[in-house]
Deep mutational scan, measured.
Amino acid sequence: MVDYIVEYDYDAVHDDELTIRVGEIIRNVKKLQEEGWLEGELNGRRGMFPDNFVKEIKR
């Protein structure tokens, strides 16, 4: 799994989504079957977030 950095703020709409803020690092990200969404861990919580608000961290 890979990590992503947040490029744009996003406020969660549903309980299974993450609220993300610019500059945060989302860890252990995986792609979901639902197009346009990823799932990852942030601040001890796992949830979904839109893939166009983040950028993969290349290592």
Rank of each mutant, 00 (worst) to 15 (best):
V13I: 05
D16I: 08
K31E: 12
E34A: 12
L42F: 08
E34Q: 08
M1Y: 05
Y8M: 07
K30P: 00
G23S: 03
V2D: 11
R59F: 09
R45S: 12
V2E: 13
D3V: 05
E39K: 07
N28R: 07
D9M: 01
N52F: 15
Q33L: 06
P50E: 00
H14V: 09
I20A: 04
E34S: 12
V13N: 09
F53A: 14
R27I: 10
W37Q: 06
I20D: 00
N28E: 09
Y10A: 02
K31A: 14
V22R: 11
E24K: 00
P50F: 03
V2Q: 08
E41M: 06
V22T: 12
E35W: 05
E39W: 09
E35H: 12
H14W: 04
I26V: 09
G23V: 01
D3S: 12
K55I: 09
M48T: 14
E17A: 03
I26N: 00
M48Y: 12
E35P: 14
Y10T: 01
Q33W: 04
D15R: 10
E41T: 08
W37V: 08
K30Q: 06
V54T: 08
L32A: 15
L18V: 04
E56A: 13
I5D: 03
M1R: 11
H14M: 10
R46Q: 07
L32Q: 11
L32T: 07
E41D: 06
D11Y: 08
D15F: 06
K30Y: 13
L32F: 14
T19M: 02
E17C: 05
R27F: 09
E39M: 07
D15C: 07
E39N: 05
E17L: 01
E56G: 09
E17Q: 15
Q33S: 14
N43H: 15
T19V: 03
A12K: 08
D3F: 03
R45T: 11
D16Q: 11
F53C: 15
K30W: 09
G44R: 10
V6I: 01
D15G: 12
L42H: 07
D3R: 08
D51C: 09
T19C: 05
V6T: 06
R21P: 01
I5P: 00
V2S: 13
G44S: 03
L32M: 10
M1C: 07
E17T: 04
T19W: 00
H14C: 15
L38F: 11
M1Q: 07
V6D: 00
I26R: 01
T19S: 13
P50A: 04
M48N: 14
D15I: 05
E17M: 04
V13S: 15
I57G: 10
D16K: 11
W37I: 04
Y4F: 11
R27D: 01
I20P: 02
G36A: 09
L32Y: 08
D51P: 11
H14G: 13
E7H: 03
I25H: 10
G23P: 00
H14S: 14
Y4G: 06
W37S: 07
M1N: 05
T19K: 04
T19G: 01
Q33K: 12
Y10D: 04
Y4N: 04
V2F: 14
N52W: 09
L42Y: 01
I25L: 11
G23N: 03
D51A: 14
D16V: 11
E35C: 10
T19P: 02
K31T: 14
E34F: 11
N43I: 03
N28Y: 05
T19Q: 04
N52E: 07
N52A: 11
I20G: 01
M1K: 15
Y4R: 05
L18P: 02
E39H: 08
E7N: 06
E41C: 06
F49W: 01
N43V: 02
R45G: 02
A12G: 12
N52P: 12
L42M: 03
E56M: 10
N43C: 05
K58I: 09
V13P: 02
V2W: 10
N28S: 09
R27Y: 07
I25W: 04
K55Y: 07
L18R: 04
E35S: 11
W37L: 07
K58M: 10
F49C: 04
E34N: 14
D3P: 05
K30R: 12
V22M: 04
I25V: 11
N52T: 12
M48W: 10
D3A: 08
V13W: 09
V29F: 00
L32G: 13
G40D: 01
Y8H: 15
V54C: 09
F49V: 12
D51V: 12
R46T: 11
